[in-house]
């Protein structure tokens, strides 16, 4: 599943980045890298997505979101919970 298909409020983990090298490096430096956790804050029609990435708010065009293969980890309305979860999963995953 790509990031475009994810519902508002859902936290996802990035599994695969299907973009050219430059774009994936750009995304990585903005916090979107393999294994990173992202929450979709809003997605509307053809508009760019609004994401919570490591506490920062990121607007991402749908074209870019299409190239991010992700796995949904469940709804989480608060950023706070996301951050905690992020740390926990990091600790477990590493």
């Amino acid at each position: 599943m790509t990031l475009t298909g994810i519902n508002k409020g859902t936290v996802v983990r990035v599994l695969q980045i299907r973009h050219d090298k430059e774009t994936s490096q750009r995304l990585a430096e903005l916090g979107l890298h393999l294994g990173s956790l992202v929450q979709v804050l809003s997605r509307a029609g053809q508009d760019p997505l609004l994401l919570d990435v490591k506490g920062a708010r990121l607007a991402l065009s749908r074209h870019l979101a299409d190239g991010l293969v992700v796995r949904a980890l469940g709804e989480d309305p608060t950023t706070q919970g996301k951050r905690r979860r992020l740390r926990r999963r990091r600790a477990q995953g590493a």
Partner: peptide
């Protein structure tokens, strides 16, 4: 330019 931008608080 692929549209990606940080929205500051």
């Amino acid at each position: 330019f692929p549209f990606v931008m940080e929205l500051p608080p």
